[in-house]
Amino acid sequence: MRILTNISKAELDQLANQPTAKAMIEKVKTEGIYIPEGDSQGAAEFIAMRNQQKQDASLQISDEGMEALKKMSEENEKKVKEGNSQEEQIKEQIEKLRKELAEIKAKQAGSEKAKKALASKANAISQQISTLSMQLIQVQKASGDSNTL
């Protein structure tokens, strides 16, 4: 029996799709490994060689590579934690501004000028709340993206 080794899937497909098997036969004859029928020792040696090749092809990470991988993982976890703390800070700021806005709306102004000033201040606080809400959404989206890494 002849066994063809070191052939890519694309090359095998190209050889198998030929109208004649001439190219494949030539490749098997020139590059194939011959194991006579009934030669169990030869077959065992071939299998051992293939298993060794598969082991050699496996991924091996050096100690330095593992340290770098761990460091990257720790940095990502730190970013997630920072993102959560930043998220909490923004939520606290929004809550403070909402309380301040409620206090301003509860105040009674005597003059038109005072009413305009309170309305202007309330509008500014509403804008700050909107801005912080947008930042919160961005932080949540970024932390959601980093969690999927």
Results as ranks from 00 to 15, higher is better:
27 K>H: 02
94 I>V: 09
91 K>P: 05
72 M>E: 13
26 E>I: 02
122 A>P: 05
129 I>A: 14
138 Q>G: 01
26 E>T: 00
70 K>N: 02
124 A>M: 11
139 V>S: 14
4 L>N: 09
40 S>Y: 10
21 A>P: 02
73 S>P: 07
71 K>E: 15
80 V>G: 06
128 Q>N: 10
114 A>R: 07
11 E>V: 00
70 K>S: 12
149 L>P: 03
38 G>R: 04
70 K>H: 13
39 D>N: 15
59 L>A: 04
95 E>N: 05
66 M>T: 01
42 G>M: 07
14 Q>C: 03
54 K>Y: 14
33 I>F: 12
26 E>V: 04
103 E>I: 00
148 T>L: 15
108 Q>N: 08
71 K>D: 11
103 E>F: 03
116 K>W: 08
24 M>I: 06
92 E>V: 00
74 E>A: 13
61 I>H: 13
143 S>E: 13
29 K>C: 03
112 E>T: 03
116 K>C: 01
51 N>K: 08
101 L>V: 01
110 G>N: 10
111 S>K: 07
66 M>A: 10
52 Q>Y: 09
4 L>D: 12
8 S>E: 10
65 G>H: 05
54 K>V: 03
14 Q>L: 10
17 N>R: 13
76 N>L: 14
122 A>Y: 14
109 A>P: 07
30 T>M: 12
17 N>E: 15
106 A>G: 08
78 K>H: 13
95 E>H: 11
111 S>E: 10
144 G>Y: 14
74 E>M: 12
124 A>Y: 11
136 L>E: 09
92 E>H: 05
119 A>V: 01
133 S>I: 00
38 G>M: 04
108 Q>R: 07
131 T>S: 12
75 E>W: 03
3 I>T: 13
36 P>I: 00
18 Q>V: 00
12 L>G: 06
63 D>W: 05
90 I>V: 13
35 I>V: 14
92 E>Y: 07
53 Q>L: 13
10 A>I: 03
6 N>F: 10
42 G>H: 09
29 K>W: 08
50 R>H: 05
141 K>F: 03
77 E>Y: 07
31 E>D: 11
11 E>M: 00
57 A>L: 09
31 E>K: 04
103 E>A: 02
31 E>Q: 06
22 K>P: 00
8 S>A: 08
144 G>D: 13
122 A>V: 03
126 S>F: 01
116 K>F: 11
14 Q>A: 11
83 G>Q: 09
101 L>Y: 15
51 N>R: 06
3 I>Y: 15
61 I>L: 15
59 L>C: 07
66 M>C: 09
110 G>E: 14
45 E>Y: 04
1 M>H: 12
14 Q>W: 08
53 Q>Y: 11
43 A>T: 00
109 A>W: 06
138 Q>K: 12
104 I>N: 14
9 K>Y: 15
107 K>I: 01
39 D>A: 04
